[in-house]
Design a protein around this nucleic acid. Structure first.
Length: 614
DNA sequence: GCCGTTTTCGGCCCGACTGTTTTCAGTCG
C-alpha cells in the first residue's frame, strides 16, 4: 500500500484529469493538480492532520481539504466517484500516451468509442483514426510510437515504487512467526532502473504461515499461484510478487540464485561445473569424481576445492539424501560469502552482477570499492518554491541538514525556462536570504546556485558577469529535444566549454517509459566534459536516472567526474540519491569519481573551473 | 478551487512546437 499522502495525491490527480477530460473549468483542474503535488510532497503524514491542518498545506483550501478529510474518514470521495462513472478508466489511461491529452482522449472515446490504450493502438493500425478528431497520419504514427515506448518499459515498475513495496513486504513477512530471514532479491536488489516483478526470499522450517501471510496482505488483489516453496500474487497496483521460502541452511545459494542476473548466474554455474561442482538455488554440490578430474588444473577448480575443503562438512551431514535437486554432497549454501568463496571469488555486490566483467575483476582482485549512500557529502541540484519546488528555502535546508550533509546547493531554474518566471532580482533576493541562513546549521555549508537552460546553440541564461556570482551552476536541456545529432552534440559540448557551467544536468533528458533520450554523440560530450572539468550529473529522480548505468561506464572510461544529485522539488525528494547511488554502483563508480562525495576543500577546487580558465 | 504588501474578485506559469488547420487547437515543459 503506498503512503497515504501518495494515495491522496493520486486521487486528486485523477480528479483533476477527469475534470479536464469532461471539459470542466481548466483552472479548477489546475488547482487540484497543484494540490495533488503539494500533498504528495508534504512532509507530514495526512493521517495526523485535521481539517484545519490540511488547509495549511499550500494549494489546499476548504473544498480540497474537505475531500481529503472525507477520504480519510470513509475511504471514498463521492465527487470523484461520480466523475469515474462517466468516463471509463481506460480513457484516462490514454492520457499517459505522449501526445494524447485530455481533449484527444475524450474525442477518441466520444467519436470512436476507444476506451483503452490497446484499443487506441488497434484503431491506428486499422487506420480508423485518419481525419477524426483532428488527427492525421503523422499523429497516428506519433501516438503509436508513444505506445511502443510505454510498452518497452511496459509492465515494468519504477525503482522507487518497487522499493517501497518490497520494504513493506519484507517487514510484514519478517514479522511472521517462524520466519528466520527475509529479504528482497531479483533485479530490485541489483537496483535496475525498472523491475518486472518483485522477488522476496525467506527462510523458515514451515513455509505455510509465510505463504498465508502473503496472500492475506490487504494490498494483494489476486493470488496467481501458491505452493509449498513458491507463491505468486498481484498487488492492487498491478505488480507481481513472487515469494520463495527455503530452509535456512540454503539461504546463501538461494539468494545468489534469485538475485541474478541470469547472465551472472550462468557464468557462476559454468565456473562451478569446471570445478566439478554444481550450483543451484539449493546449494553448491560436489557432483562426482569424474567431473572433478576433468576440471583439474583450472584456477577456479583449485580454489573452489580448497575452499570447499574448509566448509564442506556441516552441510554434507544434512543432505546425504537422494533428492535429485540436491544430489551429491553439499559444499556450502548458508551465506552468499560462502558460495562465492567456494568458487574462488570474493563476495560480489548485487549491483555489479550483470556479467559486465565483474567475475573477471573479482578473480583478479580488481573489484571497485563502490560508492555508497553514506559517502555523499552534499546535494548539488535542488529546487525551492521560488520556482517549481514545493518547499521553502528553509524547509529544504533543514531537511538537508538532517541528512547529515556538509554542503548543500540550492539551484532554482533560470529565466529562459519562461514558465518559471525567474528574474535576476528574485535570484539575488534568494541569495541574500540564503546567506542570511548561513549560521542556521553549524555543520552545513550553503551554496547558492542555479539550473541554467542550455539553448539550442549551447548558450545559457544570463551574461558571464551574473553567472560569476553563483557558487555552482548546473546546466540542463529543457527544450529542443528534436535537434539532429550534430546540433545536439554541438550544443552540449559548448555548454561543457562554458567556464561557468560546473555540472551538466540530466544529460539525455529521458523520462523512463515516457520519453526517449535525445539523439547525441555521448562519447563526444564525455570527451568534452573530461577535457573541461565539467561534471556529468547522475540525476537520482526515479523517473529519470539519467545518466543510465551503461552510459556511466562509458563516461568513466573518458575520465568524466560525476555529481549524484536529487533534483529535489520537495523535501521528500532529498532521499532520492539512494537510487542515484544504485545507478552509480551499476556504473562501477567509486568515491573518487563523484564530486559530491569529496570534501568541501576538494570540491571547491573543482568548482574553480572558471578561475582556472579565464 | 485557491489566493492576496498590486486583488475578498479576478486573476491563475506562458511560450514553443506540431500537425493540422487556412487561422488554430492541443500538448508539453
Amino acid at each position: 500500500m503506498p503512503r497515504l499522502n501518495d494515495q491522496v495525491r493520486e486521487l486528486l490527480q485523477e480528479y483533476a484529469d477527469l475534470i479536464n477530460i469532461t471539459g470542466g473549468d481548466a483552472f479548477r483542474a489546475r488547482a487540484y493538480e497543484k494540490a495533488a503535488r503539494a500533498v504528495g510532497g508534504y512532509p507530514e503524514d495526512l493521517a495526523d492532520l485535521d481539517l484545519k491542518g490540511l488547509q495549511q498545506i499550500p494549494g489546499v483550501g476548504k473544498s480540497t481539504a474537505a475531500k481529503i478529510a472525507e477520504y480519510l474518514a470513509t475511504g471514498r470521495i463521492p465527487a470523484l466517484e461520480s466523475l469515474r462513472a462517466r468516463i471509463p478508466s481506460g480513457v484516462r489511461e490514454m492520457m499517459a500516451v505522449p501526445s494524447v491529452g485530455p481533449k484527444r482522449a475524450l474525442a477518441l472515446y466520444r467519436d470512436l468509442g476507444i476506451a483503452s490504450v490497446d484499443e487506441l493502438a488497434g484503431a491506428i493500425r486499422a487506420d480508423r483514426l485518419s481525419g477524426v478528431a483532428g488527427l492525421g497520419e503523422r499523429s497516428g504514427e506519433k501516438i503509436l510510437h508513444g505506445i511502443e515506448l510505454m510498452r518497452q518499459s511496459g509492465g515494468r515498475t519504477l525503482l522507487d515504487v518497487a522499493t517501497e513495496l518490497a520494504e513493506q513486504l519484507v517487514a510484514a513477512l519478517s514479522a511472521v512467526p517462524g520466519c528466520t530471514r527475509c529479504a528482497y532479491a531479483g533485479s530490485l536488489r541489483r537496483m535496475r532502473e525498472t523491475v518486472g516483478d518483485i522477488d522476496v526470499l525467506a527462510t523458515a522450517d514451515d513455509s505455510a504461515p509465510l505463504m498465508a501471510a502473503l496472500t492475506e496482505l490487504p494490498y494483494v488483489a489476486e493470488v496467481i499461484g501458491s505452493g509449498p516453496t513458491k507463491t505468486s500474487v498481484r498487488t492492487t497496483q498491478g505488480i507481481q510478487v513472487d515469494l520463495r521460502v527455503v530452509p535456512e541452511e540454503d539461504w546463501g545459494a538461494a539468494l545468489v540464485y534469485f538475485t541474478g542476473s541470469k547472465a551472472h548466474n550462468i557464468k557462476l554455474r559454468t565456473m562451478a561445473v569446471r570445478a566439478g561442482l554444481k550450483l543451484s538455488e539449493y546449494g553448491l554440490f560436489e557432483v562426482d569424481g569424474t567431473a572433478k578430474k576433468a576440471a583439474k588444473g583450472t584456477k577456479a577448480a583449485k580454489e573452489a576445492k580448497s575452499a570447499a575443503g574448509t566448509t564442506g562438512t556441516t552441510g554434507a551431514k544434512k543432505d546425504g539424501g537422494a533428492d535429485a535437486r540436491t544430489e551429491g554432497v553439499k559444499v556450502v549454501s548458508e551465506t552468499e560469502d560462502e558460495v562465492y568463496a567456494a568458487l574462488g571469488l570474493p563476495w560480489i555486490p548485487p549491483t555489479l552482477r550483470e556479467d559486465r566483467g565483474e567475475i573477471e575483476a573479482a578473480l583478479n582482485g580488481e573489484l571497485p570499492d563502490l560508492i555508497e549512500e553514506s559517502d555523499l557529502r552534499g546535494d548539488l541540484h535542488t529546487h525551492t518554491d521560488l520556482t517549481d519546488g514545493l518547499a521553502t528555502l528553509t524547509e529544504m535546508i533543514d531537511t538537508a541538514a538532517a541528512r547529515g550533509y556538509s554542503y548543500y546547493a540550492v539551484t532554482d531554474h533560470a529565466p529562459d525556462l519562461v514558465m518559471q518566471r525567474m528574474t535576476a532580482e528574485k535570484m539575488l533576493a534568494q541569495r541574500e536570504e540564503l546567506r542570511g541562513l548561513a549560521d542556521r546549521h553549524r555543520k552545513l555549508r550553503l551554496l547558492h546556485g542555479t539550473e541554467l537552460n542550455i539553448g539550442p546553440d549551447g548558450g545559457v541564461d544570463w551574461p558571464p558577469e551574473f553567472l560569476a556570482g553563483f557558487d555552482v551552476c548546473v546546466a540542463s536541456v529543457h527544450s529542443h529535444f528534436n535537434l539532429d545529432r550534430t546540433a545536439q552534440t554541438r550544443r552540449l559540448i559548448r555548454a561543457c566549454e562554458n567556464p561557468y557551467v560546473h555540472i551538466i544536468g540530466h544529460l539525455t533528458t529521458r523520462r523512463i517509459g515516457l520519453r526517449g533520450p535525445i539523439d547525441v554523440d555521448l562519447d563526444a560530450v564525455f570527451e568534452a566534459a573530461a577535457r573541461t572539468g565539467t561534471a556529468i550529473e547522475i540525476n537520482s529522480s526515479p523517473q529519470r536516472l539519467d545518466l543510465r548505468d551503461e552510459d556511466i561506464l562509458r563516461a568513466k572510461r573518458h575520465g568524466v567526474r560525476f555529481s549524484i544529485d536529487s533534483d529535489a522539488h520537495a523535501t521528500g525528494h532529498l532521499a532520492y540519491p539512494r537510487f542515484g547511488i544504485g545507478t552509480a554502483q551499476r556504473g562501477w563508480l567509486t568515491t573518487e569519481d563523484v564530486i559530491n562525495a569529496w570534501t568541501w576543500q576538494k570540491l571547491k577546487r573543482f568548482l574553480r573551473k572558471d578561475a582556472l580558465q579565464i
